[in-house]
Design a binder for these strands. Structure first.
Lengths: 330, 330
DNA sequence: CTGTTAGCGCGTTCAA
DNA sequence: TTGAACGCGCTAACAG
């Protein structure tokens, strides 16, 4: 910048002002400066600017795993909105490892991110302690962290579980199993709560053998379905806690000679892109992932710019998408 | 930092040195400083450090789309390795939009990233112009950009296409179609070249009706397969340019009443995680995505630390994974 | 073993 | 309409 100023025969402050349009500059001076900038291919340093302004225009994003299509699609919405708002995303995969998450948070603090998006791993006590020392605005997603001052954005998992199960009941099914995600995750738990509520409402007794806990992976879904299908009183329908498990499960059904949907109805959760193209196409509860991502980014940036109001909450409603993995009980 | 120094009764340089272990400090002073740091919850500013050192320990990563499982898995390898090496990743989705890509590259320059990972979008001329003005080390992945000084890491797509096709020929198939990705992408083109080489080697004439160009999405694969299966002389096997298209294709086959693999053998490409759990499980060419990701990150960091040697190239070999979507022609 | 100081590249007073 | 100068927080000579 100093060199630009010299070459243009002006002061650095003038250069600064033509770059930022931050005070009136005569046309000829402006042109001259701009010409020199172009000629020297000068590019201002966001690092120096950040040091001065105390703003990095960078957002940290902590998630369990970017390979999970659910998160991948969520990230897309976040990243798109953030870009439009002038923010970049630093991607952090925590793999549900509290150690790694803590290490990352430390680095993000040092890098002076303007805001944090957090899909939490590990237990709350340790995490909330760390988070309390992070002064920047935060948006917590999916899994609330107790004792933390942050906006919270979630989907209504209880309703999702309820809708999925009620839908199957409406199809005439009475033996409805549920393959849930990890029980320590509130989204998993809530979906199960919804599942049980729908059952109860229909006067169907809860069969504990029909509730299997798995891990949100295709492999886990495969084993869980395999187990359920080997039961003597095997279910006629299964509600899977996410699409990946539903895929693994349909694979297991196929290999066990159980035809979907003729002999087994399957409902997934998330509506990842591939759910439209599985064999058969998967009936599932759509989460508005992209919209949620947009909302997350917008909320965070608002908070970065705005004052310190009380924490807000926003809840998105899932929606049943009926495809071909489910049909009326014959 | 100044406050820490004051409170500990030392100079800022001493504080700096205890933080960085960069010169000998007496034990009592060290302890005292450390105590104050802990007490004040002082966290050094990477921003200021970067300004001084001219190093941000940040890597820019430009890809078409993080929702594509291929890239998602690649990112994972990159991110893991980068983290271990002390680097963070700024994620940039270009969506094959040269405008957006250019805008992003500009921001990355301003943020003074230490290195760039690029899976390119758009045409080479414009891009290479921009890249020439980016002085930091670069690793180009998958799609080479002409006239750019960068390391290049790729997979051997020609061999992949060849292996896939040869495998199908070995199964007795003679009517083998190919659903390729976009023709302007070298990986797509190379896979097709391999496909044709295998055909020729086996003395099978190339049937232009059997080569369909699509777009690497499930939806595209669906349409392409649907078209191929409606042909009067429909193929007995299809080689899909990636797994997403193979999934869409199997969905189309199912809906057209064509059974996979009995009536149609399908081979995909990439071996994304879900390929193990589709119905039927997908035979595909595995790209070592995670390893490639690791190699990409390591190569880049080496280059950041090392001198300016001539560009290097590294090529990974794909491997056939035989599963259940293919079988001998009856 | 420790302190003083200059400067990294900017934005922003304050003066002119 | 423009310039001079200070300081953001840190590291690295240099000096003691």
């Amino acid at each position: 910048m100093k060199q630009v100023a010299e070459k243009a025969g002006v002061s650095t402050s003038t250069v600064s002002h033509v770059i930022n349009n931050t005070r009136v500059v005569s046309d000829d001076v402006r042109e001259r400066v701009l010409a020199v900038i172009a000629e020297m291919r000068y590019i201002p340093s966001a690092v120096a600017r950040s040091l001065k302004n105390d703003k990095t225009h960078t957002i940290g994003m902590m998630i369990p795993n970017n390979s999970n299509p659910y998160f991948a699609e969520l990230i897309q919405g976040i990243e798109d909105a953030a870009f439009k708002l002038g923010y970049n995303i630093i991607l952090c995969n925590a793999y549900d490892d509290a150690k790694k998450q803590a290490a990352y948070l430390r680095v993000l603090m040092e890098k002076r991110i303007d805001g944090l998006i957090l899909v939490a791993s590990g237990d709350d006590e340790e995490l909330s302690g760390i988070l309390r020392d992070m002064p920047m605005p935060k948006v917590v997603v999916d899994r609330e962290v107790k004792g933390v001052d942050a906006d919270f954005i979630e989907a209504d998992h209880e309703t999702g579980g309820y809708l999925a199960t009620k839908y199957l009941i409406g199809l005439g099914h009475r033996s409805i199993a549920c393959v849930s995600g990890p029980m320590h995750l509130p989204p998993s738990r809530d979906r199960v709560v919804g599942y049980r509520r729908a059952l109860q409402e229909a006067g169907i007794g809860f069969n504990s053998h029909f509730l299997v806990h798995s891990d949100f992976t295709s492999e886990g879904g495969f084993s869980a379905f395999k187990h359920l299908l080997s039961l003597s009183d095997r279910p006629s329908a299964i509600f899977a806690g996410n699409d990946l498990m539903a895929f693994g499960g349909m694979c297991a059904a196929n290999e066990a000679g159980v035809r979907v949907p003729d002999q087994l109805s399957v409902v997934g959760y998330d509506d990842i892109a591939l759910a439209s193209f599985s064999t058969p196409r998967l009936t599932t509860l759509a989460q508005p992932k992209y919209d949620m991502g947009q909302a997350i980014a917008k909320t965070l940036v608002e908070r970065i710019n705005g004052g310190h109001q009380p924490p807000r909450r926003k809840m998105f409603r899932p929606e049943l998408v009926e495809r071909q993995s489910s049909m009326p009980l014959r």
